[in-house]
Each structure stands twice: as structure tokens, then as C-alpha cells.
């Protein structure tokens, strides 16, 4: 069985389509993996979906896809085999309808790759198949061939939204109505993007510094600003924020403060879980109560930013319920050009 990474080979696409990598995606069936946290930030989904549609790409979501279950695996509430079975089920469903799956969340992207990684271990693979057999027995019928089997050489490839957007950056730029007007932007990649090895082919691409967000900011007319806590965790820490909130929020506080200190107008990130942690009003209030400082630096997901720059309707970019005065200011600076 082939358990090579399912991550889309971006380098090969760049080599094959040096002029327009976007051409690779035309005629392909694309599927957006539905991240649970997108519920709070619908612009993360819509911003990306609208862009793909404008670029004439065929895009769907998979109605049979469940949560990636990373939260439960990381707290030992399910086993490796159960985690792999959940992810294998999701992969089978997406494999049935698409060639490429896009991920707006570092956690989901990591989960799908990790679930597949575990199958390299024979014991886990056997147990995972046993679990899938149990479902098959219970369901009694096969909805389509191979649904309850570990996928051998699946056609589906996985790609993080940030990697895709960077790959087709010139096409993205052509869709933009506004620019960033020299706004100073601090970036937060998130641990499971920065430290992920599962989708890397070379040690250099794993250990080397990641600069895609900074490059996109410059391309979009903004000024990326460096800050001491650039690579630090957002504070979510596999639900540590729920279990040990004071400890975890100290990390969040330090990060936000560090970005404020260098005069950043907002923090840009490619993950809704990090966005949730760094922006939730309740957490900002707790930071004020526990550490004595009210921090108001706005936070925006890359997909939301692209929607703003493309001139989408406000509700399509940023849900009004999370709109703070500072976030409103950023929105106005960009869109009132």
C-alpha cells in the first residue's frame, strides 16, 4: 500500500505550469473541507469559495464529511485507529467527489495528514480496517465501491489554502479591487502550519523559515512587520485554553502585546482556530482582568482579507457580530479608496 503523503505537490505544479499554476486546477474537481470553526467566521469559507468561483474553478463541499476529530485525539478520547478511521472515512467521501481538497484550518489539514501517517504502522492499519469493517457490517450495504476500505493510492490530494493562494498569487492579485494601503501587518502562521513536516518533501522546506504570508502582504500593498512572538503559539494549544485558561491566555496575551508593540495595524493568519483564540472578546476580557491590559489589535484570516480586498459585501468577509471598532477601521481604510 502506498502511504506517501497526500499533500499536493506544489513544486511539481510550479515546474509544470511556470507561467500560470492556476491552469493545473482548471478541469479539476475541487472540494472545500468544512472546518468546524468556520461557523464563527463564515468569511473564511465564503471568501475562499467566492474567489475560486471568480477564477472559474469548479468547487463544492462534501456533505458526508465530519469533523476531523483532532480535538478528541489530542486529548486521548479516541485511539489512533479510531482517529485514522474517522479520517479515512472523510478521505473516502472526498475522494469520491473531488480531485483536490482545500483546508482553511491548520488543525484539520494536520489531522488528515496525521491520520494517514498512522496507517504506516501495521497494527494501527489492521485495527483501522477492522473498525471500518464493523461499520460495513452495520450498514449492510456498500454505497459505493471501497467506501469502507483503507484507500490505496487515492486520487484526492490535500492542500492548505495559504499554499494554494501563494501558488496562484498573481491571479489573486488580478481579482483585487483594493490594496492594503501601506497598513502594517503582523503575521501569525500557527504551530500546525509552521511546524508541520508531514506535507514536506525536503528537510529544507520543513526547517526553513516560512514567509508566504509576508510575501502576500507585500504583493497586496501592505507592510509586513516582524515581532518577537511571530512564531509563538496562539494559546489554544490542543484545548489547553479550555483546561488551563490562565496559563494559555498568558501566551495569547504575550503574542498580542508583542504585535501591538511594533505598531502592527492587525494580525493576519491562515487558521480559524488561531483566529478564534486571538480574537474572542471573552478571552480579551480575561486578558484584561488577569494581566491588566486591554488589547485591541484586530485579527483577520487570510481568506477574509482577500474577500475585503476583492470588495465583497461586508457580511461576506467578516461576520458583523465580531466587528470591533478597530476591525471596522481597517475595513474602512481598505474599502474607502
Amino acid at each position: 500500500m502506498n502511504f506517501n503523503t497526500l499533500a499536493l505537490d506544489l513544486q511539481a505544479i510550479e515546474e509544470e505550469f511556470p507561467e500560470s499554476p492556476l491552469d493545473y486546477f482548471k478541469e479539476k474537481k475541487l472540494c472545500l473541507f468544512r472546518a468546524c470553526l468556520e461557523k464563527y467566521f463564515p468569511g473564511v469559507r465564503w471568501g475562499f469559495q467566492d474567489l475560486l468561483e471568480e477564477l472559474q474553478l469548479e468547487v463544492t463541499t462534501c456533505k458526508n464529511q465530519s469533523c476531523c476529530s483532532g480535538t478528541f485525539f489530542q486529548r486521548n478520547l479516541i485511539t489512533r485507529a479510531q482517529f485514522s478511521a474517522i479520517n479515512e472515512r472523510n478521505l473516502s467521501e472526498m475522494n469520491q467527489q473531488a480531485d483536490i481538497a482545500f483546508f482553511s484550518c491548520n488543525g484539520c489539514y494536520n489531522s488528515l495528514l496525521r491520520g494517514r501517517d498512522f496507517l504506516k504502522t501495521p497494527e494501527v492499519r489492521i485495527k483501522t480496517q477492522e473498525i471500518l469493517n464493523t461499520i460495513h457490517k452495520k450498514v449492510g450495504v456498500e454505497r459505493y465501491p471501497g467506501i469502507y476500505k483503507i484507500l490505496e493510492n487515492p486520487k484526492i490530494k490535500l492542500v492548505h489554502d495559504l499554499d494554494f493562494l501563494y501558488l496562484i498569487r498573481n491571479d489573486v492579485l488580478n481579482t483585487l479591487k483594493f490594496d492594503l494601503r501601506d497598513l502594517k501587518v503582523a503575521v501569525h502562521y500557527g504551530c500546525h502550519y509552521l511546524n508541520l513536516s508531514r506535507d514536506k518533501k525536503t528537510i529544507e522546506s520543513y526547517l526553513g523559515s516560512k514567509t508566504k504570508l509576508e510575501e502576500l502582504i507585500e504583493l497586496f500593498g501592505g507592510i509586513p512587520v516582524d515581532y518577537q512572538e511571530r512564531e509563538s503559539c496562539c494559546g489554544w494549544g490542543a484545548s489547553q485554553l479550555l483546561i488551563n485558561p490562565r496559563e494559555a491566555l498568558k501566551i495569547t496575551y504575550t503574542k498580542l502585546k508583542s504585535a501591538e508593540n511594533v505598531g502592527a495595524d492587525f494580525i493576519l493568519m491562515p487558521c480559524p482556530t488561531c483566529l478564534y483564540t486571538l480574537s474572542k472578546p471573552e478571552y480579551r476580557d480575561n486578558i484584561k482582568n488577569w494581566f491588566g491590559e486591554k488589547l485591541e489589535i484586530p485579527t483577520i484570516h487570510l481568506n477574509e482579507l482577500i474577500a475585503i480586498l476583492r470588495g465583497c459585501e461586508e457580511e461576506r468577509c467578516i461576520s458583523l457580530t465580531r466587528k470591533t471598532p478597530r476591525l471596522g477601521e481597517i475595513f474602512d481604510i481598505i474599502t474607502q479608496q
Binding site: R34, C36, L37, E38, K39, Y40, P42, R45, T61, K63, N64, Q65, S66, C67, T71, F72, N76, L77, I78, T79, Q82, A85, I86, R89, I131, T134, I135, K138, V139
Partner: peptide, 27 residues
């Protein structure tokens, strides 16, 4: 899913039953 309601369609009951079966005997 892990949040109140997903953005878009609900997962069909048969698929939810599959997840329930996968999680048999899990914590």
C-alpha cells in the same frame, strides 16, 4: 461536528451512526 450548527448542510443520520460505531468503547 463540534460546534452548534455547521455552516451549510447537516451530516445525514446514517453518516452520524457510522461515527458512533467508530467511537465504540472510546473514552
Amino acid at each position: 461536528i463540534i460546534l452548534e450548527e455547521p455552516l451549510g448542510e447537516d451530516l445525514p443520520q446514517e453518516r452520524i451512526d457510522e461515527l458512533d460505531t467508530i467511537c465504540d468503547f472510546a473514552r
